[in-house]
Computed example of a mutant assay.
Amino acid sequence: MMTNLFTIFDPSTNILSLSLNWLSTLLGLFIIPISFWLIPTRLFFFWNLVSNFLHKEFKMLIGPNYSNGSTFILISLFSLILMNNFMGLYPYIFTSTSHLSMTLTLALPLWFTFMIFGWINNTQHMFIHLVPQGTPSMLMSFMVIIETISNLIRPGTLAVRLMANMIAGHLLITLLSSMNLNVPSSISMVLILTMILLLTLEAAVSVIQAYVFTILSTLYSSEVI
């Protein structure tokens, strides 16, 4: 029995005391047929189209200091988040992106790498970012504190945004499905239709949140180059 509503997100599947929930992060790789990699299919062409679009988008956001291959890690990040978001929509599959331990693991190393690169290679540029252009002299020290705090909370906001959006839709679907057991059949049909619409919305949110996470990471990287 659930102790609270959020218990549905607790890792619980295990065999011989070994937690298997986090294997869902790789489950998508196992269901991709081998022919996807060997034979050009419609799915292959569609994913190539998506990858090319993302490459152009990230290249434009990084700016003139773009170097070959720098968008590869960002496209891989988008693919990983998108796959995990979609896998969480299937029944009885653990949603890894609804946990802060997963989202923070993605956001924190990226942000930390950007900071190390920026402060080592572009120290003066990083100091300039702490004082926005046009700031009055008497407010400069205050703005440095504000900009430093906003910079430090970036990985947290990235992680919490993705986690909260994944949890919100799943909670709504869980609440509606639990209500469906104790209502008349006429209302039950309305609830089922609402759940289908929510599932469609969750599929859209899965794509949007993967895109937002990657775009913000790209913008953060463009500030330190």
Rank of each mutant, 00 (worst) to 15 (best):
G118L: 04
N122C: 01
V144N: 05
A203V: 09
I153E: 03
S101P: 12
T71C: 07
S178M: 11
E223N: 09
P109N: 01
T103G: 08
A210R: 11
T97R: 14
I93M: 01
L29P: 06
M126G: 03
L80M: 10
S67D: 02
M189E: 13
F112D: 03
R42I: 03
S137D: 11
Y66Q: 00
N122K: 07
L181G: 12
V160N: 09
T25L: 12
L130N: 01
M138G: 10
A204D: 04
W37R: 05
P132V: 00
L106W: 15
G156A: 04
W47R: 07
G88N: 01
W22K: 06
E57H: 14
T105P: 14
S12D: 12
Q124L: 06
M138F: 14
F9D: 01
Y66A: 00
W47G: 02
G28P: 02
M87Y: 11
V224I: 14
F44A: 02
L49P: 00
M2D: 14
L110F: 15
L106R: 12
N4F: 14
M138D: 13
L216F: 04
E57W: 12
S101Q: 10
K56V: 06
A204P: 05
M60R: 15
N151R: 12
M143C: 07
T7S: 15
V144F: 00
W22G: 00
V224Q: 07
L197H: 03
I187E: 03
H99M: 10
L16P: 02
P184F: 05
L26R: 08
G118D: 00
N4T: 08
Q209M: 10
T135F: 07
N14M: 07
N21M: 00
T97E: 06
M60I: 05
F36W: 12
I31K: 05
M166N: 09
V207F: 15
N68R: 06
T41F: 06
P184V: 02
A204M: 15
S137T: 07
L162Y: 11
H125P: 03
F53H: 03
I215Q: 07
Y211K: 14
I32W: 11
L130F: 05
I73R: 13
A210T: 00
P136M: 00
L27W: 15
L82N: 04
P184M: 05
M163N: 11
M115W: 08
F142H: 07
I34G: 07
M87Q: 04
T113M: 03
M87H: 04
G156N: 03
S19K: 15
H170N: 08
M143I: 07
N48F: 11
I32Y: 06
A168Q: 13
I32M: 13
L77C: 13
F58Q: 01
Y92R: 10
M166H: 10
S185W: 12
T103K: 06
I187L: 13
S186W: 03
M189Y: 12
F117E: 02
I187H: 08
F86L: 04
T3W: 13
L106N: 04
P91A: 02
I31C: 04
V50Y: 12
